[in-house]
Amino acid sequence: MITNTLKNSSIRTGRSFDLGKMNLSQLWIAYLTYPTILLYFALALVSYALMIYNFTSLAPVAISIVSVILVYPLVWYCIHRFILHGRFLYRMKWSATLWKRIHFDHHQDPHLLDVLFGSPLNTIPTIAIVTIPIGYAIGNIAGAAAAFGAGLTITCIYEFFHCIQHLNYKPRMGWIQRMKQRHVLHHFHNENGNYGITSFVADRLFRSYYVDARGCPRSPTVFNLGYDVNEAKQYPWVMEETGSPPRDRPDGANTTRTAA
C-alpha cells in the first residue's frame, strides 16, 4: 500500500518526489532506495572494510572518526555560507551550471528531493578532500579509510534530517522540531543565517543564527539567492540552463506546510 502511494503522481513533481506532499513512511522508502544514498552506503562499507583490513590500533582510528565528527559541521557551514551562497559561481559560465545544480535549484523549490541531495560527482570528492587527509595524518591508511567512511556516514545522516526539514511532517521530538524550524527559516524567511543542518554551533559562533522571524528581517532573495531577473540578464547561463527566468517563489508544495 505504501509503495503504491509512493508511486502516485500526486507526490511527484517532474522526476522528483515532492517532500511537501510525502509522509514519513514514504520518505523512508524514497530515502533508502535513492541511488545517491545507496552509493554513499556502499562506499562507506568499502571504507570500513579497508579500515579493518589495515587496522593496527584502535586509538588512531577512533581519533580519526572523532576528528571528522568535530570538523564536519564547521566545514559544511563554510561551504554552505561562503561557496553555495556566494554569488561568484553563477557569474562565470564554466561554473554556473554547477551552482545551479548544487544549490540554486534547491532554493528555487526546497521540496524537490532530487535537488536536495547533492550530485555524487561533487559531494564525494569534497568528502574525500575534507576527511582523508585528516585520517591519514592521524592513522595512515586505516585512519584515512575510517575518516572517509565517517564522512560518508555523517553525510547520510545529514541528508536524512535535511529531508525531514522539508517534509510534510511535524517531528515528535522537540530537538528535531527546533532543528527543522531553524532550517525552514533559512529557506522561507532569510537565507543569510541558519546555515547548519543538524548543528547550529557554527552559526552561533559566526553570529548567523536566529531563532524566529522576529530576529532577522525577511530577505527578498530567500528563493533566488540574489540571482534575480536583473542578474540573469547580465549573467544568463543559469537562466539558459533552467529555461525560464529565476522565480521569487517556489513552485510545488505549499510553503507553509513545513513551518509547523
Rank of each mutant, 00 (worst) to 15 (best):
V130K: 02
Y77S: 01
S57I: 08
R182Q: 05
A147Y: 06
F82Y: 15
M92I: 12
P120N: 09
R178K: 15
A59Y: 12
Y158V: 06
Y77T: 04
R81N: 11
G143Y: 11
R91L: 05
G174I: 09
L98S: 09
I176N: 02
R101K: 12
I83E: 08
F82V: 03
F55N: 01
P133M: 10
N122R: 04
K170S: 14
P120F: 04
G143C: 06
D114Y: 11
T131L: 08
P125C: 02
P133Q: 05
P133D: 06
I129P: 06
T155P: 02
I141L: 14
L84M: 12
P133H: 05
V71R: 02
D109Q: 14
I138M: 11
L70F: 11
N54I: 05
K180W: 00
S57T: 10
M92Q: 13
I157N: 00
W99Y: 14
P110M: 00
I65G: 08
H183A: 00
F88L: 05
A128G: 13
T97A: 14
S57W: 12
I164C: 01
F55P: 07
C156R: 01
C163V: 02
L89F: 14
F148S: 13
M51A: 14
K93C: 05
I129K: 03
A142L: 10
L84N: 09
P125V: 08
G149T: 03
A142S: 15
Q165I: 00
I79C: 09
R182M: 02
H107A: 03
N140E: 10
N140W: 13
I69W: 06
S64H: 05
I141R: 13
I127R: 03
H111E: 08
R87S: 14
W99D: 02
R178Q: 15
L113R: 00
P125G: 05
Y72F: 14
L89S: 12
S119E: 13
W94S: 06
K100D: 13
W99G: 03
G86T: 13
V130C: 13
T126Q: 06
F104C: 06
W99P: 03
W94M: 08
A49T: 14
L112M: 14
G135P: 07
H103S: 13
L84P: 02
I164H: 02
H166N: 00
H106N: 01
A128Q: 09
I79M: 06
L112I: 09
Q181H: 15
Y72N: 10
I164S: 01
I154K: 01
M51S: 12
P60T: 02
G149Q: 05
A59S: 14
S95T: 15
V66S: 07
I141M: 08
A96V: 11
I134E: 05
F161R: 00
L89R: 08
Y136F: 15
D105N: 12
R172L: 15
I134M: 04
A96Y: 11
G118F: 02
S64N: 07
P120L: 12
G139I: 07
Q108I: 11
H183D: 00
L152G: 04
A137F: 12
Q181C: 04
Y169V: 08
F82I: 08
L112K: 01
H162F: 01
L89Y: 10
Y158N: 03
